[in-house]
Simulated assay, not measured.
Amino acid sequence: MLDWLLNLDKELLLLLNGQQNYFWDYLMRLISEKEMWYVFYIVLMTCVINTFGWKKGGLIILSLILVIAISDQIASGIFKPLFKRFRPSRDPDFSHLVNLVKGYTGGKYGFVSSHAANSFGLAVLASLILKDRITGAFLIFWAVLVSYSRIYLGVHYPSDIIGGAIVGISMAYLSYFLLRKYFKSSLLKKPVEQTHPIARLYQISLLGTLQIIIMAFSVYFCFNR
């Protein structure tokens, strides 16, 4: 059974990793870079502050940062050294079948994906706190996109992503439970009059973030042809 699952994992990786072309190579490489999302993080923090105020918002932002930090440590500090599973790009018996982008291979071990753990941890906790469908849908889409980019680049198996997502989601729900239990539900209660304007502001900001990604990709493409 385990061998069947491992073979299925490799087959799915080759299927998703094999659909490559010049345009998607650069775009997925950019999406995978954490620095590309700094504006996105700033927008999200601004949304939290505007919605909950500085005192409550600051505590919520601290919770989001802790979820990312803890998820990252569990993925990179516990799971990877414990399982020591080679990334597909690093596996001496498999890497020759993987399409790599400009020789990017990532670290030695890949189970579980810290990118998936971090992005799903942030996305789920922020969605639970903000309680806005549009925002929540975008955050989950963002987490899926970042995670898929790791498979596309050949540095993670699908099971690495699933494992990382489970870690991140678990930490998000644990953090949300602790916030509600120890700081009372009033901490997470949004002022009604701010809900609609902030939702609109966030949607506009998301569009701006996407424009920045497109512009960054264009610049990267021009200088690396």
Rank of each mutant, 00 (worst) to 15 (best):
L128P: 02
L145C: 08
I140Y: 10
L128V: 11
Y148N: 07
L125P: 00
A123F: 13
F120P: 00
G154W: 12
S149E: 03
G136D: 03
S149L: 09
R150I: 11
H156M: 08
V124M: 09
H156W: 01
D160T: 01
A123M: 14
L128T: 03
L153I: 12
V144Q: 04
L153W: 14
Y152L: 11
A126C: 10
S119L: 09
A117V: 06
I140V: 15
D132K: 10
L153P: 10
L139I: 07
I129S: 14
D160P: 00
K131M: 10
R150E: 11
Y152A: 03
G136L: 02
A117N: 09
G154L: 00
V124Q: 05
S119W: 01
H156E: 08
V144D: 02
I140M: 14
Y157I: 11
A126M: 06
I151C: 09
N118A: 01
N118H: 05
F141N: 07
F120V: 13
F138S: 06
S127F: 03
L145W: 07
V146T: 11
I129F: 10
V144K: 00
L130F: 14
A143C: 11
A143K: 11
I151V: 15
V155N: 08
P158S: 06
H156P: 13
F141W: 15
I151K: 10
D160C: 05
I151A: 06
I140C: 02
F120N: 04
T135E: 09
S159Y: 15
L125V: 12
